[in-house]
Design a protein around this nucleic acid. Structure first.
Length: 133
DNA sequence: ACGCCCCCGCGTCAGTCAAC
DNA sequence: GTTGACTGACGCGGGGGCGT
């Protein structure tokens, strides 16, 4: 978990924000097997191969001739790249927000859990000390 | 009303990584 | 080596809060 967070913060993580439900289940139940496999859940990628509507794939380089055609093709490729990157950035930010929201929820759950455990510890201490007296 | 500051979302660029 | 996806960093513009 901490490793996952570190990976995300260091920028090598992928698909931030895709943990959440399982993380929360883990936090509540303490069941580490609730998370899937070795891979941090938020790094699981969903295939994003679909292009936005209206986007036409570039023609193969072999069909181009004049410098003007080449220039037009380069422009078209650039526009396509920018469009894809724009969408990717939006999706990336959405996942990141979701991931942060999830972490905040987890903090809240763990704080409650921590309070309960402290309370339980105090109770047990009381029991022990009353027995030894 | 105005200026200022802060926050948020966006578009873009650059770098990294995995798949091929 | 090339390519596509992802993401951190940067700059910009808009909106809201606050003091004057």
């Amino acid at each position: 978990m901490l490793a996952s967070l570190e990976q995300f913060m260091l920028g090598s993580g992928r698909g931030a924000g895709e943990l959440c439900v399982q993380e929360l289940i883990m936090a509540v139940t303490g069941d580490e097997t609730a998370a899937t496999g070795d891979m941090p859940a938020y790094q699981i990628r969903t295939p994003t191969t679909t292009l936005p509507q209206g986007v036409v794939m570039a023609a193969s380089p072999g069909t181009l001739h004049s410098p003007q055609q080449m220039a037009e093709e380069a422009t078209r490729k650039r526009e396509l790249r920018l469009l894809k990157n724009r969408e990717a950035a939006k999706e990336c930010r959405r996942r990141k927000k979701e991931y942060i929201k999830c972490l905040e929820s987890r903090v809240a759950v763990l704080e409650v859990q921590n309070k309960k455990l402290i309370q339980e510890l105090e109770t047990l201490k009381d029991i022990c000390s009353s027995k030894t007296d």
